[in-house]
Computed example of a mutant assay.
Amino acid sequence: MRTLDFRRPVRFGLAVLLALAGVLVSPVAAGPVGAATEPGVTSVDRRPLGIAVTPDGSHAYVANSDWSTVSVIDTSTDKVIHKVRGLSDPAAVAVTPDGRRLYVTDSGADSVVVIDTATNVILSRVYVGQVPMGVAITPDGRRVYVTNAASDSVSVIDTDTDKVAGDPIRVGSTPIDLAFTPDGRRAYVVNSGYGSPTPVSVIDTATNKVTPLHVPIGNFPYAVAVTPDGRRAYVTDQNGTVSVLDTKTGKLLGAPILVGWKPADVAVTADGRRVYVATGQDETPVYVIDTSTDKATTVPLPLHSPTARITLTPDGHQAYVTLPCCGAVYRFAI
């Protein structure tokens, strides 16, 4: 297989997020890359960021920030079969456990867009805090938690009514991402504000009370994933490392794990044995961590392109990464 080089001239977007979090986003292409014929490559719209796969693995949804769209990919063919318009600056996506709805943070409109996955029609728009970035759905599908990067808060949406439930939850500076424990009892929020004394906030989802964790994670924590047994949380930071958090004690386990430049996302396999990390590094953009040793190695991929977000298919056989510099999604076996 030949190497796919997706680097292009620079054009910056998501200026608000860059100013807030100090995160260097990769160069962007002038338009979608014409590489749909390459195995595992799907052309989408400009600067794809968040990506999620339906529980049955049949479709993937991609938030394209610069073109204000969500691409719908048929995973059996790696082809875009629909494009949802009407958004401003989509950033992250999450699918409900029953696969019937998609929640998309629209950071340019301070809202979350709700999409019917059967029809790909926008059902409603829920206004939350300023610059909503991360989104996660509780395992029971009853609530959606949204990080508001410019409000230093988390909003909760009731999925029965698609209305905001209660007051915003105050967390640390510039919350970007969050993840739930498998039982849904706690949400781990990463706060990307420079020098934040509380890089991680833990929300008790029964009461929405917050416990700040004063742990020495590197500058600009950016993504978090919790292992299937709920015992560890893996947190990326823009120093090029991943920290391992003991969820029982709230303390770090061992030294930070060195990965590539600007690790932007993290995902844990269903068996909890491996953690995949998407980075902003050109030559080796994806790393894998063996959770038994917490050692990282590069994943050999035919890519010369920084990655933004990563998601794994429910069957545990495939991974998808978004390539913001070129308007593409890359699928590979794991």
Rank of each mutant, 00 (worst) to 15 (best):
Arg274Met: 08
Thr159Ile: 10
Asn239Ser: 15
Val126Ser: 10
Asp116Thr: 06
Ala187Glu: 05
Ala52Tyr: 00
Pro199Gly: 03
Pro263Cys: 03
Lys248Met: 02
Arg142Ile: 00
Ser305Phe: 04
Ser107Thr: 15
Thr297Tyr: 00
Ile217Arg: 03
Glu283Pro: 01
Val126Asp: 09
Thr54Leu: 07
Gly272Asp: 07
Leu4Gln: 10
Thr269Met: 04
Leu87Val: 07
Val242Asn: 02
Val135Glu: 07
Thr96Gly: 08
Ile289Thr: 02
Arg331Gly: 08
Asn191Trp: 04
Ala92Asp: 14
Val200Met: 09
Ala223Glu: 06
Val226Asp: 00
Asp66Lys: 11
Phe6Val: 00
Asp110Cys: 03
Tyr330Asn: 04
Pro199Thr: 10
Leu4Pro: 07
Asn64Val: 03
Arg47Trp: 13
Val224Pro: 09
Asp152Gln: 12
Val62Asp: 01
Arg273Met: 14
Val156Gly: 02
Thr207Tyr: 05
Val84Arg: 02
Thr284His: 15
Arg273Lys: 15
Gln281Met: 14
Val84Ile: 15
Asp271Ala: 13
Gly184His: 11
Val146Cys: 10
Pro212Gly: 02
Val235Asn: 04
Ala150Lys: 01
Gln238His: 12
Gly230Asp: 10
Pro27Asp: 14
Ile73Ala: 05
Asp167Ala: 15
Pro314Arg: 11
Thr211Asn: 03
Val33Met: 13
Val268Gly: 10
Val23Thr: 12
Val62Glu: 09
Ser243Lys: 00
Ala233Thr: 04
Pro300Leu: 02
Val275Lys: 06
Ala264Met: 15
His304Pro: 01
Val268Thr: 08
Val156Ser: 02
Leu323Cys: 11
Thr298Gly: 15
Ala29Gly: 15
Val10Ser: 14
Ile289Glu: 00
Pro139Arg: 08
Pro132Trp: 04
Val95Pro: 00
Asp158Ile: 13
Thr311His: 07
Asn208Trp: 09
Pro263His: 03
Thr77Arg: 14
Tyr276Gln: 11
Pro300Lys: 10
Ala94Glu: 00
Lys83Leu: 09
Pro9Ile: 02
Phe220His: 13
Ser292Cys: 00
Arg8Phe: 07
Asp56Lys: 05
Thr227Lys: 06
Val131Lys: 06
Thr236Gln: 06
Gly240Glu: 00
Val321Arg: 03
Leu20Tyr: 03
Leu14Thr: 07
Trp261Pro: 01
Asp183Glu: 03
Pro197Val: 08
Tyr127Gln: 13
Ala223Gly: 13
Asp315Trp: 11
Thr181Phe: 06
Val62Pro: 06
Asp282Arg: 14
Ser68Pro: 01
Val146Ser: 00
Thr207Met: 05
Val121Cys: 12
Pro221His: 07
Ser196His: 07
Ile122Ser: 13
Leu301Asn: 09
Phe6Gln: 09
Lys251Trp: 04
Leu102Lys: 02
Arg85Val: 12
Asn64Arg: 03
Val84Cys: 08
Ile137Gly: 01
